[in-house]
């Protein structure tokens, strides 16, 4: 990421509205690996996935695959919102639509920075929206 050529803010802005779709199956292994990693032994996470699973990159950060170029050399995650609308069950297939939604230009005493906002809508195989994620990447 750090090696790629930097874009102008106008070049970044041209990506607003661009979308990408992806899907993944939530099997028992996905739920188990997630719970083992964070150390969540709660027995209710067998047939139902913990809501935190939506925070996993494979569910809600595929937005990066849109390939929006960075305007500045460094980038970090600035913040995120997650709305959990319906439980995700073992065996569900989650279809996610990621969109590069917004570019906010900021400046501070440390120099210019850009907030790049991505919105992701997650639906299950029945077309029900199970979660909505908003992720902000700060490039500076």
């Amino acid at each position: 990421m750090a090696e790629s050529k930097l874009a102008t803010l106008d070049e970044v802005r041209a990506y607003i509205g661009r979308k990408i779709e992806e899907s993944m199956e939530i099997d028992g292994t996905v739920i188990k690996s997630f719970c083992e990693c964070i150390g969540d032994p709660n027995p209710i996470w067998k047939e139902t996935a913990p809501p935190g699973l939506v925070t996993a990159a494979m569910i809600s950060s595929g937005a990066m695959l849109i390939g929006v170029p960075l305007p500045y050399k460094r980038s970090v995650a600035g913040g995120a919102d997650w709305e959990f609308l319906k439980p995700i069950k073992k065996g569900d297939k989650i279809f996610t639509s990621h969109e590069f939604a917004e570019l906010q230009e900021k400046s501070s005493d440390k120099g210019p920075r850009a907030l790049m906002v991505y919105k992701s809508t997650h639906k299950n195989q029945r077309g029900e929206v199970v979660a909505i994620s908003t992720n902000t990447i700060m490039s500076y």
Partner: peptide, 16 residues
């Protein structure tokens, strides 16, 4: 540490 891992920890704080 991944910010999202911290987010996952906070979801566990709440679900616990």
């Amino acid at each position: 540490v991944h910010g999202r891992l911290e987010a996952a920890y906070l979801t566990q704080l709440l679900t616990d």
